[in-house]
């Protein structure tokens, strides 16, 4: 199996502070990788570097062997990397359906999109996605009126519509109730297989439910990588992240 996402000695410095330090990791095609770490470990910064938001000081990011290091965000997105933000970010003044439609508009250029409406296959797909994220009943509502959980699902729906090969999810269950988390896990499971996923998550019960391999970061460095049970018994991880109390 070829590697979908390869990070090669990735480093970023903000002044003298090294936020991400020499991170090397590779994620296989179709894999779901969970990125774990305490606050300030550099997880979100790592995602920012992969998606082009923060320029890397050193190292390379490769998607299916193609070097995309420090490209502009929209080019990286066009190369097949999609991401969900920690603070859910959707188009607040557009309706739920329009949000999904925007993500379904292909092509970076304004001239390619000087046309009316969606193709029948795209409209069908938009309807399917609205159904999938469970927002069919509110699809003509403006996104600003959605609840927090609904906004998170809408952003996941945007990602599904964009259909990137590599999906970066930054805390998809942050601030969710138990039921909402369950439903989110359901949506993420549907993404699995066709997409390669990198997920930042704190909720251990959620991690146990979805994770195959976990990578643990601490102070900008990767300190462990392995299955859930490997990580739970790893002493260094316990000391750095989980505290003496262990995983609750």
């Amino acid at each position: 199996m070829s590697d979908a996402l390869t990070l090669d000695r990735l480093t970023v410095k903000f002044g003298a502070f090294v936020a991400v330090d020499d991170v090397t990791m590779s994620i296989a095609d179709g894999e779901l990788r969970v990125l774990l770490g305490a606050n300030g470990a550099g997880k979100t910064t790592l995602m920012d570097m992969i998606s082009g938001r923060v320029p890397c000081t050193q190292g390379h990011v490769r998607v299916f062997g193609r070097d995309i290091t420090n490209w502009q965000e929209h080019k990286i997105a066009a190369a097949g990397v999609g991401r969900k933000f920690q603070i859910p970010s959707v188009f607040r003044n557009l309706t739920v359906k329009q949000n999904i439609e925007v993500a379904r508009c292909h092509g970076q250029s304004v001239f390619k999109n000087l046309r009316f409406g969606m193709s029948p296959s795209d409209s069908d797909r938009v309807a399917e996605i609205v159904e999938l994220i469970g927002l069919a009943a509110v699809q003509s509502l403006v996104a600003a009126h959605l609840s927090h959980g609904q906004t998170q699902w809408l952003e996941l729906g945007i990602l599904v519509a964009q259909d990137p090969k590599v999906v970066l999810l930054d805390e998809p269950t942050a601030g969710m109730t138990h039921d909402e988390t369950y439903k989110t896990a359901e949506i993420i499971r549907r993404l699995r297989g066709n997409h390669t996923l990198l997920v930042i998550e704190h909720d251990m019960s959620f991690v146990r439910e979805i994770a195959e391999i976990i990578t643990v970061m601490h102070l900008g460095k990767v300190i462990a990588e392995g299955s859930v049970s490997d990580i739970e018994t790893n002493d260094e991880v316990r000391a750095a992240y989980l505290g003496s109390a262990g995983i609750s």
Partner: peptide, 30 residues
Amino acid sequence: LADTRASLILQAIRDDQQRARHLGFDVPLY
């Protein structure tokens, strides 16, 4: 023009530029 997809994308950009960039749209061009 306001009924085209480009205009929908432009309104999306108005709401959240960063989100639109990560969907692959060349924001300054729009």
